[in-house]
Simulated scan of single mutants.
Amino acid sequence: MEDKEKQGSPSGSFVERIAEKMSAAANAKRIYGEPVERNGVTVIPVSKAAYGFGGGAGTKAGEEGSGGGGGMVLTPVGYIEIKEGTTKFRPIQDPQTLIKLFAISGVAVLLTARSITKIFRR
């Protein structure tokens, strides 16, 4: 009975259509790019995908309406290298991640140094 209610309501069919389109877009071909071969080395790009969607429907003054949307983000994370029968995953380092790591490490060193200084002052 719920299925019939979903199909009959504008929000059920609308949200289902968005979900179908988003899931079709987030497939393996998007995550793993087309292989590229040069000089005996094959490289396959690898990404991670994040997607979301939402929708809704309502009535106001006797009129019905529905709306919604969605989006997807693909982030490169590395590549698969195939060379001489050996396969290796090579991650791509994000420079912003390294900057954040150094900043956090610097703060941790500063706080540790302050704590040690306070201990020796006592």
Rank of each mutant, 00 (worst) to 15 (best):
E2T: 15
D3F: 12
K4A: 14
E5T: 15
Q7L: 14
Q7P: 07
G8P: 07
S11Y: 10
S11K: 12
F14M: 07
E16A: 11
E16R: 08
R17C: 11
I18E: 08
E20D: 14
K21I: 07
M22I: 05
M22A: 10
M22C: 05
S23F: 09
A25Y: 12
A25C: 06
A25I: 09
N27W: 03
K29V: 05
I31P: 05
Y32N: 11
Y32G: 07
G33A: 01
P35W: 03
P35S: 06
V36T: 12
E37H: 03
R38D: 13
R38G: 02
N39M: 09
N39L: 10
G40Y: 00
V41E: 07
T42E: 05
P45W: 12
S47V: 04
K48P: 07
A50E: 13
A50D: 10
Y51D: 06
F53V: 00
G55A: 02
G55Q: 00
G56N: 02
G58S: 04
A61S: 10
A61D: 13
G62C: 03
E63W: 05
E63K: 11
E64D: 11
G68M: 06
G69A: 09
G70H: 00
M72I: 13
M72E: 05
L74D: 03
T75S: 06
P76Q: 09
P76G: 11
V77I: 15
V77A: 01
V77E: 04
V77N: 01
V77H: 02
G78L: 01
G78V: 01
Y79A: 09
I80D: 04
I82A: 08
I82Q: 08
K83Q: 12
E84F: 01
G85Y: 04
G85N: 06
G85I: 05
K88P: 03
K88W: 00
P91E: 12
I92C: 05
I92H: 05
I92V: 12
I92K: 06
Q93F: 14
P95N: 00
T97L: 12
L98G: 08
I99W: 04
I99H: 08
K100I: 09
K100V: 11
F102G: 08
F102S: 12
A103C: 00
A103S: 14
S105K: 13
V107R: 05
V107K: 10
A108K: 07
V109M: 13
L111F: 08
T112K: 02
T112S: 08
A113Y: 02
A113I: 03
R114P: 02
R114G: 15
T117N: 14
F120E: 11
